[in-house]
């Protein structure tokens, strides 16, 4: 543990956390550069670099600047948002299984999107709006139902979220069973979560919102860590527990809405990234920053695998985050045991 000072500001910093975040950012940067510079169309990195700088083959320029670069940036934004929101919800619920799903957000977003697809045959933009509306309405409903005496307790929030989520997930199955095969398949593709066809317009808007929200999440990380010790103790340390909790839920919901609107419900990242980050940093608190970096690295790497594993067939990134993230977590769990026995 050491202290970083900047003028009158000083922040306590854990060396191990800083190292982990640095390594994760380096991995993200390296994979990002590789993602932009290599691919089917441009055969050498030099050609791709030319295209990136606006020289050479026009078609290569389109591929590199209009397809690969926005896609890689979108992967980073989506991953960081999912990681941060997962860390927030695990801290609030005090439960390693806590993720944005626990407040029914993801299920509600799916209900919105699947309704738009199945009942109205919506365009992708309309589906994104449907997902946002469904998710936000569900989160608001769960929050209101879980409110009592002017505040929300973690366990009650979780349980109400489980109940509401169960109903909505049944509605989703009903929609899938009752719809035509074609509509059900379109819905299944959206439900898998994918980063195909990212445009600069999407990335610019989502990127700025994402950066703002990630800064807010980082600022909330210390008071959140104190909440874990219990409301009274945190209150004694100068924190307003209900205020922090409400603000965190707001930021967490906004983060996961952003990610879901861009890419659909990408499986497992919000749940796994904070757990992986905590295991690597050995941090006792919610490790919001490390979770963000882990989420970004995870989604970016998985999207590369999704694009290249069965090329030219492109898998949805959600398929890969589930299997690769799952395998990584299994490996980490087994390694932890072996180390403890030594």
């Amino acid at each position: 543990m050491s202290v970083a000072r900047l003028g009158r500001l000083s922040v306590r910093v854990r060396r191990r956390s800083v190292a982990v975040v640095a390594v994760l950012l380096a991995v993200t940067a390296a994979v990002g550069v590789a993602a932009v510079l290599s691919g089917e169309y441009t055969s050498t990195p030099a050609q791709a670099l030319d295209a990136l700088l606006g020289r050479g083959d026009v078609l290569a320029q389109v591929f590199v600047r209009e397809v690969r670069l926005p896609r890689a940036l979108a992967a980073v934004v989506v991953g960081a948002a999912l990681g941060a929101s997962g860390a927030i919800f695990q801290a609030i619920s005090g439960n390693p299984l806590g993720s944005p799903d626990i407040i029914g957000f993801t299920v509600g977003a799916a209900t919105g999107a699947v309704t738009t697809i199945v009942l109205f045959g919506g365009t992708p933009a309309q589906v994104a709006v449907g997902a946002l509306a469904g998710g936000s309405a569900t989160a608001a409903l769960v929050y209101l139902l879980a409110r009592r005496d002017g505040g929300v307790a973690g366990p009650r929030l979780v349980l109400v979220g489980v109940g509401v989520g169960a109903v909505l997930s049944a509605v989703n199955s009903l929609l899938l069973v009752r719809s035509s095969l074609a509509a059900a398949q379109t819905a299944a593709v959206w439900l898998a979560g994918s980063l195909n066809a990212m445009s600069w317009a999407t990335v610019t808007v989502a990127g700025s919102a994402g950066v703002l929200l990630c800064v807010l999440a980082t600022l909330l990380s210390r008071p959140l860590g104190l909440l874990v010790m219990g409301d009274e103790l945190a209150g004694g340390l100068g924190i307003r527990p209900q205020g922090v909790r409400a603000a965190s839920i707001g930021v967490g919901v906004a983060l996961v809405s952003l990610a879901t609107a861009i890419a659909g419900p990408i499986a497992f990242v919000a749940l796994a990234a904070p757990q992986l980050a905590r295991r690597l940093t050995r941090s006792p608190g919610p490790a919001v920053t490390a979770s963000m970096a882990m989420g970004a690295a995870l989604v970016l790497c998985c999207d590369q695998v999704a694009q290249r594993l069965f090329a030219p067939v492109q898998l949805p990134v959600g398929v890969v985050t589930g299997s690769l993230g799952g395998a990584y977590m299994i490996w980490l769990l087994t390694r932890e045991v072996r180390q403890r026995r030594r």
Binding site: P96, L191, A267, A272, L315, G318, V319, S323, G326, A327
Partner: peptide
């Protein structure tokens, strides 16, 4: 719990891979 979640996620992804590529199975 975490092991179960990890195994479920991995198996769930494989299920999605199959149903996205095989219409009849879906």
């Amino acid at each position: 719990a975490l092991g179960g979640v990890a195994v479920s996620a991995a198996a769930g992804s494989l299920v999605q891979t199959v149903i996205l590529t095989d219409q009849r199975a879906f």
